[in-house]
Design a protein around this nucleic acid. Structure first.
Lengths: 167, 167
DNA sequence: CTCTTTGCAAATTTTTTGCATGCGC
DNA sequence: GCGCATGCAAAAAATTTGCAAAGAG
């Protein structure tokens, strides 16, 4: 699960260049966080990245890892699996894909049936059984485009947890 | 964002039938949770489902909603967007897909390039801009197949939060 | 009547934030 | 030196679990 040294160096160069281009401050922590993600093909979560980074910088904190990872994500240098917010459900039974707006988080079902899209890549069959193939298109919906800037819901903190002792 | 009454009824019938077939107890809460998901095409999260259910059953609790949703997921009646565990990162820059093992949660990159798979369905272009197309194949990897049964890590609770006062 | 499911509350887990200090540029 | 980034700790958000009481089959 290790990335080749040459490929890794290529990625790091690109990162450093992007930092200069985009005016992002290049700190040792950030470099190390990026190295940890770029060097692994195990798709680590934040905690795994932390462990990797701590080998060289024993006192980096998990929050720095999170901050850096999302920053790298903004820069387009790392991708994510899973959403940072809550899990969403749907009961549409026909096979379909999703379009997800990265600003308002709304989801549309894409019913257009391109059968090849649901055919699992042959490569996958060698890895194990296949239970589901899921395609997700991400972008910014036209509504959000119009009203530019993200309008995050006013921090759910305000809401009273559940309906606990309503009186 | 409402599902047609006929389609909704069809889904509910299927749910009730599956309950009988699979020996799942059909409680009013469960029916209502399913109705809430099946009636919406907004891909609600657990809290949104709760709000829908509470219109008829003001005292259902969020935990029941969660329990029911995952149960419906097991039954194959609802699908999910996003993972229930933590977000994972990767720094692979070439376009690629993922194979995710539902037991050990490991992820493999699928580099096999089927260009059509990355072409966003035309339907999506009408909804907004497109930033990324992501395909995820889910299943059980051969390793886990061999050692059947899921071997969930022994509840991360055991671990000492971070490196807080190690002495 | 029995055994599953519910509601409640508290615990767990994951992620974010406020603030004083430190370091890249 | 200035201002963003870090570390720390604590908050927030999301989800799960233990347990007594209620209800389905």
């Amino acid at each position: 699960m290790q990335v080749q040294a040459i490929e890794l160096q290529k990625r790091i160069d690109r990162f450093q260049e992007l930092c200069r281009t985009r005016g992002v401050r290049l700190t040792p922590q950030r470099l190390e966080v990026f190295r940890a993600v770029a060097a692994s093909s195990a798709h680590p979560d934040a905690e795994m990245v932390l462990r990797g980074v701590q080998k060289r910088f024993p006192n980096v904190s998990l929050d720095t890892v999170y901050r850096t990872l999302w920053m790298l994500n903004d820069l387009g240098l790392v991708g994510t699996l899973g959403r940072r917010d809550s899990v969403r459900f749907d009961a549409e039974s026909r096979p379909h894909h999703h379009y997800v707006c990265r600003r308002c988080q709304r989801v549309w079902d894409l019913m257009e049936h391109n059968p090849t899209a649901f055919a699992p890549p042959g490569e996958a069959t060698k890895l194990g059984t296949i239970q589901e193939v899921r395609l997700e298109v991400q972008g910014v919906c036209t509504d959000c485009e119009k009203t530019d800037k993200a309008k995050r819901p006013p921090s759910k903190a305000a809401r009273t947890k559940t309906t606990r002792t309503p009186s």
